[in-house]
Design a protein around this nucleic acid. Sequence first.
DNA 1: TCTCATTCTTGACTGCCATCAATTTCTTTT
DNA 2: AAAAGAAATTGATGGCAGTCAAGAATGAGA
Lengths: 230, 230
Amino acid sequence: MSSNDHLCGCHGSMQSCVSIVPIFNHLQPPQMETIMKAVRTRTFKKGESIYRAGDFSDTLYIVHKGKIKTYRLAESGKEYLVSVLHPGDFSGEYALFSESIHESYAETLEPSEICTIQRKDLQGILEKYPEVALKILGEFSRKLEQSEKQTAYFATERVESRIALYLADLQRQQGERLVKLPMSRKDLAAHLGTTPETVSRKLADLESGGYIRQHSPKKLEILDLDGLLA
Amino acid sequence: MSSNDHLCGCHGSMQSCVSIVPIFNHLQPPQMETIMKAVRTRTFKKGESIYRAGDFSDTLYIVHKGKIKTYRLAESGKEYLVSVLHPGDFSGEYALFSESIHESYAETLEPSEICTIQRKDLQGILEKYPEVALKILGEFSRKLEQSEKQTAYFATERVESRIALYLADLQRQQGERLVKLPMSRKDLAAHLGTTPETVSRKLADLESGGYIRQHSPKKLEILDLDGLLA
DNA sequence: TCTCATTCTTGACTGCCATCAATTTCTTTT
DNA sequence: AAAAGAAATTGATGGCAGTCAAGAATGAGA
């Protein structure tokens, strides 16, 4: 644990995480102030671990700067990459209301700043500001829908379709023909339930089919979105 | 829609759904009374549709009696069975806080009674009783964890392991060596992302390996739980 | 800019599981 | 209880994708 803990004294020039998170950013400034008091900021180097499976879980983690990935490990050692979190995204949610042991791992993909709120502080916040609970409910239901859809893809689509659907989703998020993959082939494979080799091959197939163009391993151009999803 | 709508006047001999649902059953009787006023009960025959993908979604469905399945259909027509809901379980949650169009289907597996609450009524309840929101948050985080775990199984485990894990889970839920499968081979296959044929074969393999015993298609005996999960 | 480690791609082969088809077993109906 | 229909099993075959291995491309760091 070489990370750097300190109270967040960033009420001045520095922008607090609180104001960029969907679950808090609708609040009035004075309310935000209250929440900021419960927030601590930690900085991490690239590739550092934030939490691991088996760790006691009583903290909500909000990404302020950087990029973190959460993943699970099967007994076989095979990895499933759950998500890549960008600034404003949060994790650690489950344990806040029920279980208290992490089943997944979280580590930074880049140097990052993470804001944390302790469970007991969050519970106080929820009691004081019930509208935050409603925001979190909305966020949870979105994640649940997303997770269910992802599972459905695994159950019903073959690898090439899962890749195509992933690319289409990325395109939708980023809004440009030229999309930037936020992770390596290995991580992408771990997210889509396949192998780096197969990802390579299927991307090559999509390219020779005229659906995409690979400018570099992480820069892809979507040429035919409809064809991709057909 | 041949189902039978009526207001739930069941304050007497008949037990209301409200008192059996985890998200409400912690409330005091007078508060429950308030909620019951917003509840309607509908009865369905076996195999009847409750909602379909594309339907407008503004209702929470709580199973009172019977058994219902929720599923998604891929464009190919391939089905992913999301869940089988038993009395006390609920569905339709997503739309209550964000989206408003169903992406999945729900239909009864047996003659069933379903209690419904309209979105606007539920929102009133959440404002009046914030502790209900916290209950739902807990329920959501449990479902989210479960869904994530399920996805991880798809990504990292082969079919035989997924079946074994499913059986182990069933065993844990039912608490007896003799477990009752709540669905057909076809539905089980649709839940585990495989085919009825493969389910048959793998169950036969598990049986000849001495891990389980098949008394009838839906009655299985777990002989070696640890071996199953190894 | 050059170098080196890492990541990515391509090839050959294998195996798991889907598909199609034919019985057999179970369940439901009359 | 018998018969019809539905569900489950078993067999044969093929294809998708995983594994192992070698070579090419990328990009991070000096």
